[in-house]
Amino acid sequence: MQDTPLNIVQGRDLSFIREVEAESGQKVSNCYQCGNCSAGCPAAFTYDLQTNQIMRAVQLGLKDKVLNSKSIWMCLSCSTCSLRCPNNIDVANVMETLRHMARRENRVNVPVMNKFWLSFLNTVRAFGRSFEIGTMVLYMLRSLRLTTDVDLAPGALSKGKLGFKPHVVPDGGAKAVARIFRRYEERARREGVRP
């Protein structure tokens, strides 16, 4: 609701600020809103909230605004923001923390990003190593974007850049990796969060 003014007394979730600070290890009140993080962000043009606005919203404890934002999913983790922050805040770490928090609460506002990651991780789970064509196929099925990157296929295939067969970790290694995933998912379920 953009029209209603924010009640700065009641509209804030102070425990959210503490949680973000604890999990990221960053002190968000150190941010003085210079905007350097936004200025250098390669993904800024895809954001609904600029990085400094995310930081501001965290400072104010606006949990819904932050965790429902698209930006936290579009972040590329290049950490340009952290590198150039004049206040030594690891902004990329804050972004990743917010992404983890949103996922645990089952708020995924850019499903394609999530679908891509899951497709990638599915192949790792299956074979122990990532499998590029497998990732693509799974992603296309999940996202129903069946023409994704088809323009690249002829070049990549003719150069032998993409193998049709996955590389499976030998000697039971793949199974060991699958066990890591299984335990991870079981634990997430036990803890009542989205894996």
């Binding site: 983790s77 983890h100 990003m113 122990g128 990532s130 970790v169 290694g173 990796v177 890591i180 991870y184």
Partner: peptide, 24 residues
Amino acid sequence: EWNCCGSTPAHAVSTELSAALCTR
């Protein structure tokens, strides 16, 4: 028997999952 480090998707999803894959 090296395995995938998890790349960006793993740490985007969970730092612990990423670390587990790498640690192995």
